[in-house]
Nucleic acid binder design. Structure first.
Length: 473
RNA sequence: GGCGGGUUGGCGGAGAGGUUACGCAGCGGAUUGCAAAUCCGUGAAGACCGGUUCGAUUCCGGUACCCGCCUCCA
């Protein structure tokens, strides 16, 4: 059996992955807060964990892996949108309206992640479907002395959990000294965090022992992972920015509510994504969603390739140059493997992936398989690349041409004939200027020109320019 | 201030204490009317300063610079 090694944030080192139960592997990924389209940074953990899940499927069997990724559908921005709609006259309670709003964004999320070739998780729980479980967990925390109710709020008593700060390497005292914590009159200690907070009439709320209110951030993941995966599960993943406070607080809640479990055994954190060397932010103008890229005709497969070309524990820089190189590579591979039946994945690819998800190393192996297209195809497909239903982008440019009322196939045939005639004439006259002009124009239009003694071949490239090609007819 | 990540050849980006990463680009050759594609060959690296070692880009310590988190942002 393939030995999988993973870097565990909790122990700060790479370790051999030992399932708690090889018959039932359990993995939880912190999913999106569904207030809007997913940005590119949201896609990184999804693609990384998709790669891990595919590997686990291969090693242990797909039916022995349970993959959970939640939707957090309680959030101030969602609430604001719901309230706005209600005030605009849309019928229904605020709870109904946030449900409608998040149903929209969840559908977008699915479409976008599907485009990246990410497998759907086995469970995609929505926070608002687990309010009773959250309330029950909060009650048990109060009973155990780990939480207290005050003024309609319920807070987690950080000092009651000696391990608090261990995951992120912080101490409670240091953090208070850092003085960036919210001080509120209802807190016993500045580091205590909210489990439940009251809602007024303009906020969605659910009945609870502490009055009508809504859950704080963090508790939803503890409640849902427990409900679906139990006291202990194998892997918990997410972006490194969630390490503190989100994951630290999850650990505190879950371990105090279920002291006999170990919660998550391995914590996987991916590093952040940057754009052209800078943090992606709206103020810098380099913020974009996955959908923005797809609409700019950057294929989902290309996005996936770029995301996998940097190791997940390193900062990843998205550049348009990388996207273009990736597109060229995938184009070549798709041409090379056209009509080929996949054989079996190269063991070196699996070995690289098993070594702490070395996706960049695995891609390097793919490059070495040019002479064995069947194995290249199988290996790439193992990584969620070169799959049949992700290849539509190769026809995007052809589609554009069809809009210009001719088919690319006919156009290239007729231009091949034209170029052949021109060359034959030039061979006789020794004046090649006409041939060169057409050849240059074709190249500029994104067509690969192959001339040999046996004939001329024109091949559409990844960046075929429809209008330019049409002008040559 | 606290915590964490990064720094590899022109660019991107891995592994390994000593033997070619790899890709793109470049250069030389074959081929071509000239190119392209293809094939063959090839130069080029590990921020800085110390330490351990027979030997470090790889381990340890420090410095510099960049980035992130500590603000419901993956």
């Amino acid at each position: 059996m393939v030995e999988i090694r993973l870097t565990n944030t909790k122990t700060r080192g790479k370790q051999v992955f030992q399932p708690i139960d090889p018959e039932n592997l359990r993995i939880y990924l912190c999913g999106p807060t569904v207030y809007d389209r997913a940005h590119l940074g949201n896609a990184r953990p999804v693609v990384v964990i998709d790669m891990l899940v595919r590997l686990l499927h291969h090693v242990y069997g797909a039916d022995r892996v349970t993959y959970v990724r939640n939707f957090t559908d309680v959030d101030d921005k969602i609430n604001a949108t719901a309230l706005q709609r209600q005030k605009a006259g849309v019928p229904g309670s605020l709870e109904d309206l946030i449900r409608e709003r998040t149903a929209e964004t969840i559908a977008w999320y699915h479409a976008d992640m599907d485009a990246l070739g990410a497998l759907r998780p086995d469970h995609e729980p929505r926070a608002t479907d687990y309010i009773p479980q959250m309330i029950a967990m909060i009650e048990s925390l109060i009973d155990g002395g780990h939480a207290y109710a005050k003024d309609g709020h319920v807070l987690f008593r950080v000092r009651s959990f000696a391990e608090y700060g261990r995951l992120s390497g912080r101490s409670v005292d240091d953090m208070i000294a850092g003085a960036r914590v919210e001080v509120a009159p209802f807190k016993e200690d500045p580091m205590d965090f909210v489990l439940w907070k009251p809602s007024d009439a303009e906020l969605p709320g659910w009945d609870s022992p502490w009055g009508r209110g809504r859950p704080g951030w963090h508790i939803e993941c503890s409640a849902m992972s427990h409900e679906l995966l139990g006291d202990s599960f194998d892997i918990h993943a997410g972006g490194i920015d969630l390490q503190f406070p989100h994951h630290e607080n999850e650990i505190a809640q879950s371990c105090c509510a279920h002291p006999h479990g170990e919660f998550a055994r391995i914590w996987l954190h991916n590093e952040m994504l940057q754009v052209e060397g800078k943090k992606m932010s709206k103020s810098l103008g380099n913020f974009f969603t996955v959908r923005d890229l797809l609409e700019k005709r950057v294929p989902g497969e290309v996005i996936r390739f770029v995301l996998l070309s940097t190791h997940y524990r390193k900062p990843m820089d998205w550049t348009s140059d990388k996207a273009q190189t990736a597109e060229d590579t995938l184009w070549d591979w798709r041409v090379l493997t056209k009509g080929v039946t996949p054989s079996t994945p190269d063991p070196r690819v699996i070995e690289a992936l098993a070594d702490d998800l070395n996706t960049a190393g695995a891609i390097a192996v793919l490059y070495s398989l040019k002479d064995d297209p069947a194995r290249l195809l199988a290996s790439a497909q193992f990584m969620g690349l070169l799959l049949p239903d992700m290849g539509d982008w190769m026809r995007h440019d052809l589609g554009r041409i069809e809009n210009v009322n001719f088919s690319v196939k006919d156009a290239l045939e007729s231009l091949t004939a034209k170029l052949t005639d021109l060359r034959a004439a030039a061979m006789a006259s020794k004046d090649f200027s006409g041939v060169d002009a057409l050849k240059t124009a074709l190249t500029d239009a994104g067509v690969e020109v192959r001339m040999s003694k046996t004939g001329i071949e024109l091949l559409a490239g990844p960046r075929l320019d429809a209008a330019a090609l049409g002008a040559l007819l």
